[in-house]
Design a protein around this nucleic acid. Structure first.
Length: 582
DNA sequence: GCCGTTTTCGGCCCGACTGTTTTCAGTCG
């Protein structure tokens, strides 16, 4: 199931980018030159997209990379070699961590946080909340009751999601410790269970299930891992630790005979398990994490099963994929033999919705194409931003024409691979699109997305999206609700009406595979399927690395019961193009 | 911070929106 990750230095590059971004954040709070801040942010993105970082560090040629000068080259080298930057450590100490946390509150940026910290002396979110409640915020210039209210709402949103993690972060942390546990000699079998295995978009903790005859040894090994910050509980069957990444992780160790039952039990969901136990009971059986038992009076006898498939079979069910175990109809479908054959990562044929260096992406069209081809895909849809998206380097019509010529050139060079001329066109406030019809007609592929004016009423936003969908050139509706997991709520919109409109105009809806979005929500996929609406699983990539995010999008599609027939970019290129020309 | 046949200082991207104001500051994308 696992994220195949990337070749070579992904973690190093991401970690370096993270530190540079962190420095930029601190600079924002300390009145640094705004262009210096941007230089750091820019360098973070550049490093993230570099394929030859190690060579350049070794040869000292980092400064040849646009956006990296003497200073940043030194910082990056220091970080790569020593794991830290002295100046970063110094900056970190100059500002309380609780102040930096405030920046994650929606509507609070560096300027306001600085006033809250320097003038109102609040050093964490709790103190800030108190200031809002007593009306102390509104005493400052340009602060008023409405801003107090917005801050309180932002804090409440953060609290509601306290202890939750993006699936991408949780998975990365889980894989790191899981691989070690799995390779530990006393361990016979091991799997990541829980909501990560069910591919939920947000995850509270990591669950690992292992089998062994020497549970104590396994527990000692687990609680002694270098990734562990704190051991919360430690026993022979269960241990709980807090990882240095801040995520809580559970390990359960059972005998190898018990493993399939434990795996099923700790994969959940709780609701699925309740329904399964009810079914077992009706069939004269009993089910828990240690086994499936036949019950006769007071006599209980274990029913041996070597894996989960056998457990389901004993209960008269087809194997149910973990993604579907939410008690949302999967048990009935497994009984009737009507479970869908879920789309897999391998089914995906084309990567669409990718930003190039024409707008806010890092890589050139050719780099993106060659990388996608190397990964085994057969087509790529370049979809940069349209002209209104000034912040993201949106393309003016003349630049679009230039890009088309470049795409033609790249297509001539590549064999057995097709680059499509696409665009992520902004949906303007009134639902019209950001280019005239003549220009739109020239694209192979048009994704329409909202990037502005999120605070409309539900009626206004719904009709705005439906108007965009009804445009004859629109093929796909991009990130339909605009949500950013753990940081921004979706805008108000009636997605059922939007899906109905997508069905009417034969427009596909995106599952944006960026782990911060995962939008369309999987809970709405069955409705879309029932209306015949197709889905596009798109990485919304801004670097070659981001293309791997497709993994998270496919997870959501699977959770939404979708098959490869439902997913337009799981179709061969000819079929996809035929559909685009519909 | 970076960049540069405008070669070493001066420019670097901006439009929309909100909540404050009474002309603008801050945030977001």
């Amino acid at each position: 199931m696992f994220y195949r990750g990337n070749d070579n230095y992904l973690m190093d590059r991401r970690e370096i980018a993270q530190v540079l971004d962190d420095m930029a954040v601190i600079f924002e709070l300390t009145d640094e030159n705004p262009f210096k801040i941007r230089a750091y942010q820019n360098a973070a993105r550049v490093v993230e997209g570099m394929s030859d970082l190690e060579e350049r560090i070794a040869s000292g040629s980092l400064t040849e990379v646009p956006g990296i000068g003497k200073n940043l080259a030194d910082h990056i080298t220091e970080l790569y070699k020593t794991g830290k930057i002295k100046e970063h450590e110094r900056l970190r100490k100059s500002i309380p961590p609780g102040v930096i946390d405030m920046l994650s509150i929606q509507g609070l940026g560096p300027k306001r946080v600085k006033i809250i910290y320097k003038e109102l002396k609040a050093t964490d979110i709790g103190q800030l909340e108190l200031l809002c409640r007593v009306g102390a915020i509104r005493t400052r210039k340009h602060f008023g009751p409405k801003i107090e209210e917005n801050i309180l709402q932002g804090i409440s949103y953060l609290r509601r999601h306290l202890g939750e993690h993006l699936s991408s972060n949780a998975l990365a942390a889980a894989v790191e410790i899981f691989e070690k546990v799995k390779r530990h000699p006393p361990v016979k079998r091991a799997e990541i269970a829980g909501s990560i295995r069910r591919r939920k978009e947000l995850v509270k903790d990591i669950d690992i299930v292992a089998s062994s005859d020497a549970p104590k040894k396994v527990m000692d090994f687990f609680t002694g891992l270098p990734e562990v910050e704190k051991v919360e509980a430690k026993g022979e069957t269960k241990s709980n630790v807090i990882l240095k990444s801040g995520i809580s992780a559970d390990l359960r160790v059972v005998s190898d005979k018990e493993f399939p039952y434990a795996l099923h039990h700790f994969t959940g969901s709780k609701e699925h398990n309740i329904a399964m136990r009810g079914r077992a009971q009706k069939m004269g059986m009993k089910m828990n994490e240690y086994g499936l038992f036949s019950v006769r009076g007071k006599q209980e006898k274990i029913i041996p099963c070597k894996d989960e498939t056998e457990i389901f079979a004993r209960l008269g069910l087809e194997y149910i994929e973990p993604e579907l175990r939410e008690d949302m109809g999967e048990i009935a479908a497994a009984e009737n033999g009507t479970l869908p054959k879920l789309v897999t990562e391998k089914d995906v044929k084309g990567i669409i919705h990718v930003h190039s260096n024409y707008s806010d992406g890092i890589n050139t069209i050719e780099e993106l194409a060659r990388y996608s081809q190397k990964l085994g895909y057969s087509y790529l849809g370049i979809c940069d931003h349209s002209q209104s998206a000034g912040y993201a380097g949106g393309l003016k019509p003349a630049e679009v024409k230039k890009q088309w010529e470049e795409i033609n050139e790249v297509n001539k060079k590549l064999k057995g691979f097709t680059v499509l001329k696409g665009i992520e066109v902004d949906i303007l406030t009134n639902g019209s699109l950001d280019y005239n019809d003549e220009l739109l007609e020239g694209f192979d592929l048009v994704i329409a997305s909202v990037h502005s004016k999120f605070n409309m009423t539900e009626e206004e936003m719904t009709s705005r999206l439906i108007k965009a969908i009804s445009h004859p050139n629109v093929d796909i509706l991009g990130h339909p609700t605009g949500r950013l997991l753990l940081s921004r709520e979706a805008y108000k919109v009636d997605m059922h009406k939007v899906i109905d409109a997508a069905a009417k105009y034969n427009v596909a809806i995106e599952i944006n595979a960026n782990p911060h979005r995962l939008d369309l929500d999987w809970r709405l996929c069955p409705y879309a399927h029932s209306k015949g609406v197709k889905i596009a699983v798109c990485p919304d990539a801004h670097t070659t690395d981001n293309i791997h995010d497709i993994f998270f999008g496919v997870g959501i599609a699977r959770k939404g019961w979708l098959t490869k027939e439902d997913v337009v970019n799981a179709w061969p290129v000819e079929e996809f193009i035929r559909w685009l020309k519909k």
